[in-house]
Amino acid sequence: MSARRGIAGWVWVSPWLIGAAAFLFIPVILSLYYSFTDYPMLEPPLWAGVSNYARMLEDPTFWLVTKNTAIYVAVSVPLCTILALVLAAVMAGRSRFDRLLQAAVFIPTLVPLIAAAMLWLWMFNGELGLVNRALGLIGIDGPSWLTDRAWVMPALIIMSLWGVGQSVVIYIAALQDVPRQMYEAAKLDGMTAPRRFWHVTLPMLSPVILFNVITLTINAVQVFAIPFVMFRQVDGQNPAGYFYSMYLYDNAFQYGQMGYACAMAWVQLLVIVALTLVMFAASKRLVYYRAA
């Protein structure tokens, strides 16, 4: 009986196992192999040892895109998290009014990235864009967001903040799970609202925050479509808007260097795994898990 049941389990999960093997595990392993070869798409791979990895060390473009991506992740993830928490805290109610606010914040996350990129190209347009017109109203001469290298990163981060709705909704759902008695108790202790947020709400939310921060980080490390559409113009790539996944894509499909692209992809994977592990480790002290 138990043996048959064992087989039944494997049968039920087999679709995923087969699919993951075909579309995930084998490609991942192949990618590792290709990363040790020279592989222009049109000719067979040729063993090249660790040269692709060695090359990263002295490739200035690699360091440029790594730096840009690191800055983007390091600034946008914390800012998004803080903004999402604040918005969630003030909109967490179940009233019709709160629902409407939540919907407003959530809607931008539904906009396809390509459409969002075009929308913000228009918003940030130096002379006609709404952003600079609004700044003009309060007497500020807005920068050339899309061409001035100093302003490309802030523009992208503003866009990432616009897409914060998903996190807000997640935090609101978690907030609604926090037992009311905890707030009542804190109120009786004479805590003010901000202190309650800090001492009660945050600890209770911390597992959700951790999970969300990890997801945001994994996505931010891979940022591709928006800078791909916005900063690739007729006269080439704006270096400030050049990110890791874009350079990886260029190497694979533009420069015909699949091997180098795969090596970069593996470095990206290892970085993501490392970041995740570090966050889990660091969170041991910070995250509060309710006794289940």
């Binding site: 991942v28 192949l30 894509y249 694979a252 795969c262």
Partner: peptide, 15 residues
Amino acid sequence: MMIPFPVIMAPLYLA
């Protein structure tokens, strides 16, 4: 869920 698409993009294309 951690595997980024770029990692498998090239070999997937080849497959």
